[in-house]
């Protein structure tokens, strides 16, 4: 099986650690993952802000870049949902072939590899935010939670109001800053009520938003992408 990594522009630029963790994790599970250099961005920011033509161009580019692969792994629920939900409307002919091969990371681990215990070790108190596009776009269900429950040492605490949006919404956070900040304040309040050390999600853009408020408020709660927790082991990888 030829597996490609779609790192996403946000992870590539701002959260390379998530990409490295994804590669580490997949290698540990015996998957040789390729990184097609020509990839850039899925086009979500453009499409969701109202710049459809640019989005169509980026969707076609995505289809070209990942044409030869059997599976494309995306460590982002929101970019995954963009591809699966919006590409068929934006560029159905060009993307028809590639779209069904795109998997969010937890889908790839559970549905394709059939693994729920990835052999990770992470002795911390963690709460999980399911993120809107993972939950209602990709319908990931409890996949990420099943993976986290099998991490040795990890204490998983439920997040109150987990299914509510954190208020990021891409350019929404800038176009409607007051509502966005109010939503994030409630999300942060819920995170704090769990007493968790780490807030985990399958989406770094939401984590960047909540994390930006967590650090501004000097809460000491750390944000980590699901891939980073799943990549962690008791001993350093050779």
């Amino acid at each position: 099986m030829r597996v490609a990594l779609f790192i996403t522009c946000v992870n590539d630029t701002l959260f390379p650690g998530t990409g490295k963790a994804t590669v580490t994790l997949l290698r540990r599970l015996g998957v040789d993952v390729a990184f097609p250099r020509a990839q850039t961005c899925c086009g979500q920011m453009h499409v969701n802000t109202g710049y459809r033509e640019e989005g169509v161009r980026l969707a076609r580019h995505f289809a070209d870049v990942f044409a030869g692969y059997d599976a494309v792994v995306v460590p982002s629920g929101s970019c995954g949902a963009m591809v699966r939900e919006q590409y068929p409307r934006l560029a159905p002919a060009a993307t028809g072939e590639v779209v069904p091969k795109v998997y969010e990371l937890s889908e790839f681990l559970i549905d394709v590899l059939g693994v729920t215990d990835v052999g990770a070790y992470f002795p911390h108190r963690v709460t999980y935010h399911p993120t809107c596009h993972s939950l209602r776009g990709l319908h990931l269900g409890d996949r990420p939670l099943r993976l986290l429950r099998n991490v040795r040492g990890l204490e998983l605490v439920p997040l109150p109001g987990a299914e509510e949006c954190c208020g990021f919404g891409g350019t929404f956070a800038v176009k409607n800053p007051d509502i966005s900040a109010a939503m994030c304040a409630d999300k942060v309040g819920n995170v704090m009520s769990t007493g968790a050390e780490v807030l985990c999600a399958a989406d770094n853009s939401c984590l960047m938003h909540i994390g930006g408020t967590l650090t501004r408020q000097k809460t000491g709660v750390k944000i980590m992408h699901l891939a980073e927790i799943l990549a962690a082991t008791e001993v350093a990888e050779p």
Partner: peptide
Amino acid sequence: PMSAWTDTRDIPDIPRESFRDWW
């Protein structure tokens, strides 16, 4: 316009090296 973000939230630290350069 980006002050709308930083009024209530920090921006993430920009990493020294992107993922593609690391690769």
